[in-house]
Each structure stands twice: as structure tokens, then as C-alpha cells.
Design a protein around this nucleic acid. Structure first.
Lengths: 105, 105
DNA sequence: AATATAAGTAACTAAAAGGTTACACAAATA
DNA sequence: TATTTGTGTAACCTTTTAGTTACTTATATT
């Protein structure tokens, strides 16, 4: 599984995710939206898929189309990391609180 | 201001942030914690500082020391992005709900 | 005053990231 | 059936990233 933080590090990939969150989108629609070649978009999509931020389904009417769907669950790893940072920070504030309480004895 | 998503993309930098969140930490303590040279750590810290994820204060007793303090506020940009993704996604779900309601007329 | 310590900078290297053009191929359409 | 369309892959190039060693500087410490 590819590193989700690395996946989010690129602005093009972040914008792809925004598009796909609004509406499932096929590859050519993405290509049209960016000033970038198809292989470039193709790679970005592949990486997003590898980090589980999106999955790809085959078009119902036109089976050539590959339609990207967002998978928000993958963001959990990022949320967990940020919560951990905050938890550590709060624990520190608690210790500081205890320290200050003891000072007032 | 450096890209915060890029700053978080590197595992060493993420771990530095965790350490610093628990406790303000000077450079050498960071260097000791990783199997990596000082210049490498120095660069990571610099980048974290440039993206406002931490700030550096001079040691009170030993003024040579540069002590890293976390700045959680910088995470807002990441939180905003994730909220936007979820907002887009929910709006879509709402539209789907309306569609299904109309079907049952 | 001499030495040890905390940290930064310069110059370099290897690998990863992000892009390109050219080509291939299967499915839809005329 | 011939052609167009949607997509993927290969090979390549350039820039960025992440690390190194060697050196410098300033402040503490003995």
C-alpha cells in the first residue's frame, strides 16, 4: 500500500481527489481538466488508487471508460496521525497543569 | 511558505513532529533519536519550520541550543482540505437522496 | 586560555518524482 | 469492416528530494 501522505503531497493529485469527490469521473474528463498529458494523469490516478484514496470501476454503458470513485475511508490514517499529535500535545498541557497546581501548594 | 502536505510526506519529519509534540526538543536530541546525520535532521527541521509546523526558540540556560516547539495551527490547512473533500462528497449524497425521493413519487 | 559542545553550511551524490513523446490495443461507432 | 475513441505502457529526461562528508562558527565549560 502506497504512502497516503506522499499521495496527498502533490497538488494535482489533491485536485483530482476534489473532482472525484464531487462526482465519479472518467480518465479523459480528468485529462481535459488539467494542462497535462494523459500518461501524467494516468500515473497520478494509479498512485491514488495504490493508496486506496480512489477505486476504479468500468463504465456501465461504455466499458472502455474507467471511472474513478473516491474512497474517503483512506483518509483515516491522516486523521489518526493528526489526532496523535494533538493527543501528545494535550498530555503535555495536562502535565503542565499538574505542575502549576503543585506550585500553588 | 512551504507546502505543508509536502512537509508531512516524509516519515522522518512526521516522527520529528510526534517527538516535538510530546516535548520541546533540541536539535541534538533529534539527531540522537534517528540513525541519520545532523545535516539531514537539520534540513528536515528547516522544512518543518518553513511550513510553520514548528518554531525554534533559543535555549534559556544554554543559548547554543535550538529548541523546537510544535505549532499545531499549521495543520488547519490539512483539516480544511479533508473537510472540503467530505463536504463535496456529502453534497453528492444529498443530490442522490433527492433523486431517490423523486423516484418514489 | 584551551577544549568541548551545539549547531549550521557547502558541495556533492543517488534515487525518486513528475513530466514528456511515441506506440499499442480493445471496445464503440459509422 | 474501417475508423474513432478511451486508456495503458515503455522509454526517456529533468528537477527535486533525501541523504552524505568535510568544514565553520559561536557559546559553554574546564
Amino acid at each position: 500500500m502506497a504512502d497516503i501522505f506522499k499521495a496527498l503531497a502533490d497538488p494535482t493529485r489533491r485536485e483530482i481527489l476534489l473532482m472525484v469527490a464531487e462526482k465519479p469521473t472518467n480518465i479523459n474528463t480528468l485529462v481535459d481538466h488539467f494542462e497535462m498529458s494523459r500518461p501524467a494523469i494516468s500515473k497520478h490516478v494509479k498512485l491514488l488508487e495504490a493508496s486506496a484514496l480512489l477505486n476504479i470501476q468500468t463504465g456501465a454503458t461504455d466499458t472502455r471508460q474507467r471511472i474513478c470513485h473516491i474512497q474517503l475511508e483512506a483518509l483515516k490514517e491522516v486523521e489518526d496521525y493528526m489526532e496523535q499529535l494533538e493527543r501528545f500535545w494535550k498530555k503535555r498541557m495536562d502535565r503542565l497543569g499538574e505542575f502549576l497546581d503543585n506550585q500553588s501548594d
